[in-house]
Every structure is written in structure tokens, then in C-alpha cells.
């Protein structure tokens, strides 16, 4: 349906950066670190970027929980991002980020933008995909990578 529209997301979400039914993460910090570590392993960001995302959460608060059940951790590039990237986590046990109305978090899309505005297209794609009716609910129920690719 949205083949052309979301081809960027599809290309970015390789198996390497997607984890479904993730268990054992209990705090927002652990969640952000795990989402970030997938980007690090994929060569998109360095360790400092992960530290920056965690400090951003701690100092700026839980506003990265953008919609019910969905968090999008990120930090400013600060030279720590090699290229734009996203990783995808589906949490088996939802984690509270202390957000006033959008907790608990089930889906985590960790975002890295390489420059101040080079990620605008990516943000646009994410916003139009994730803003679709029932998409977050669907994402929290899929059980395979193939299903994810079907939805995107």
C-alpha cells in the first residue's frame, strides 16, 4: 500500500536493527541504551551518542514518548552520528517512562540524525507512517520481521 512512501524506513530497518519481543529491560535508561546499541553495532553512532540520549532523557524529561505507547529517543548529532539511522524495539514487558499520558512504552524507535536538518525526510516518513490509524497497536502485536516489513 505504502510501498513508495516508506521505502526509506524499510531500507533502514534491516534485521540488524530490529528486535521483537524484547525482555528484561526495566528502566527507560536500559531501553534507550539497548536501542542505541543496535545503532552502534550497525555503525551508525558511537558510544557517546548513547550516553547523550540517556542524559537528554534524564535532563529534559519523558517528552520523547510522542504518542501512546511509543518512544523515540534521540540526541543532537554532535559529531557522534556517522549516518542517519533508526532502530526498532518491541518490548514484551512495557516500560514506564514517567510520561503524564502516553505511558507505558511498548514500541521504541531510536533515532539518529547525522546533521541538523539531514533527517527531515526521515522524520516526515516516520510521522506519516506512525501517525496511521492503529499502527502502533499493530506494531506491538507483530511476531516476525516479515510482518514488520508488511506493515511499513
Amino acid at each position: 500500500m505504502n510501498t513508495t512512501k516508506n521505502s526509506t524506513l524499510r531500507k533502514m530497518l534491516t534485521r540488524k536493527v530490529v528486535r521483537l519481543g524484547v525482555e528484561g529491560l526495566k528502566t527507560p535508561q536500559e531501553v534507550i541504551a539497548y536501542g542505541g546499541s543496535l545503532l552502534e553495532q550497525a555503525g551508525k553512532v558511537n558510544r557517546q551518542y548513547i550516553t547523550d540520549m540517556i542524559s537528554a532523557y534524564e535532563s529534559l524529561g519523558p517528552y520523547i514518548v510522542m504518542a501512546p505507547g511509543l518512544a523515540m529517543p534521540h540526541a543532537r548529532p554532535g559529531g557522534n552520528v556517522a549516518e542517519n539511522g533508526i532502530s526498532f524495539l518491541q518490548l514484551k514487558t512495557p516500560v514506564a517512562f514517567q510520561h503524564s499520558f502516553n505511558d507505558p512504552v511498548k514500541i521504541v524507535i531510536t533515532l539518529a540524525g547525522a546533521s541538523d536538518d539531514g533527517h527531515i525526510d526521515l522524520l516526515q516518513d516516520l510521522s506519516s507512517f506512525l501517525g496511521g490509524e492503529g499502527v502502533i497497536e499493530q506494531l506491538s502485536q507483530i511476531t516476525s520481521y516479515e510482518e514488520l516489513m508488511k506493515i511499513i
Binding site: A56, I64, M66, M72, H74, R76, L123, Q124
Partner: peptide, 16 residues
Amino acid sequence: VCGMGFGTSLMLLMTI
């Protein structure tokens, strides 16, 4: 406005 002026605020601006 967002914490960094980089993520959610950009998304919101595009929507607006």
C-alpha cells in the same frame, strides 16, 4: 519547541 529543537519539534512543525 522540544528539548533539543531537533526531533519532536521538527516533526510537529511539519505537521503544522
